[in-house]
């Protein structure tokens, strides 16, 4: 497999208006956080004397989680499209093979998500991380969510129709961090079923020890899920 393989990915996306549109969503989310959310906060304060500013960071963190999910779904559907067309079988009989193909499919969404998460945090000043290493690490953990969705679709959906049905259930992952924000202690731990819950906690905590604890749990959780899903996908005969 060569680097020029990647250039055709852009052409594949360009050929599908829905996929192109969904690639624009990170910019829409950024614009919302940059302009819309501050405006709503201002209006809430002026009209009802209600201070929404404590929720700004949480809203931003929530938006942050949306992007890898979106990327995972976009590329998951590219994968299902290729499965429907028998492309994965055709690649299976080349030296690149199914695993090489999957690495290609995984590389792009995680890279886009990672760059977006970093830019999002830095531009919007969502977090005062002590160093870039910690920020990079947590950005990588959050971005790896894209791979979970991509592999989940690849492992369990036989076609795009099935993929659409499955992707409706992905919202349950986003519910994890939301429960953490809205439920009182100790009920907020219910959200712990979602890997995003731990990533969000790691991202929001100002405490160094807690950062490493939640990041560690998050990495273990993501790695275990990715390993199971990767094996499941590889075992499929298509």
């Amino acid at each position: 497999m060569k680097l020029r393989t990647l250039t055709y990915d852009y052409k594949l996306l360009k050929g599908d208006p829905m996929l192109m549109l969904s690639m624009g969503i990170p910019f829409i989310l950024w614009a919302m956080m940059q302009f819309l959310v501050p405006w709503i906060m201002e209006v809430a304060m002026e009209q009802w004397d209600f201070d929404l500013s404590p929720y700004y960071i949480q809203t931003g963190t929530f938006f942050l989680m949306l992007v890898p999910m979106m990327m995972g779904m976009v590329y998951g559907f590219v994968l299902l499209d290729e499965r429907d067309g028998g492309i994965i079988t055709a690649i299976s009989v080349t030296p690149t093979g199914k695993k090489g193909y999957l690495l290609l499919r995984m590389g792009i969404p995680i890279t886009i998500s990672f760059v977006f998460v970093l830019l999002f945090v830095l531009i919007l000043h969502l977090s005062d991380f002590r160093n870039l290493f910690q920020l990079g690490l947590i950005a990588l953990v959050i971005s790896s969510q894209s791979l979970i969705l991509l592999l989940f679709l690849g492992a369990f959906a036989d076609n795009k129709v099935m993929g659409l049905a499955i992707s409706k259930g992905f919202g349950i992952l986003l519910l994890g961090p939301l429960l953490d924000y809205v439920l009182p202690s100790p009920f907020h731990w219910i959200g712990g079923y979602s890997p995003l819950f731990w990533a969000s906690r790691a991202f929001l905590t100002p405490d160094d020890f807690q950062f490493w604890l939640y990041t560690g749990i998050s990495i273990l959780f993501h790695t275990l899920l990715l390993w199971i899903l990767f094996r499941k996908f590889s075992a499929r005969s298509d």
Binding site: T89, A90, V93
Partner: peptide, 25 residues
């Protein structure tokens, strides 16, 4: 291997299909 049902990238041109697959070798 040429499969019974043509499994090609429908959104790419004929030339792009061949160039893309050539990159897998």
């Amino acid at each position: 291997v040429a499969f019974e049902f043509p499994n090609l990238y429908m959104k790419l041109t004929a030339l792009e299909n061949l160039k893309l697959f050539a990159s897998f070798f």
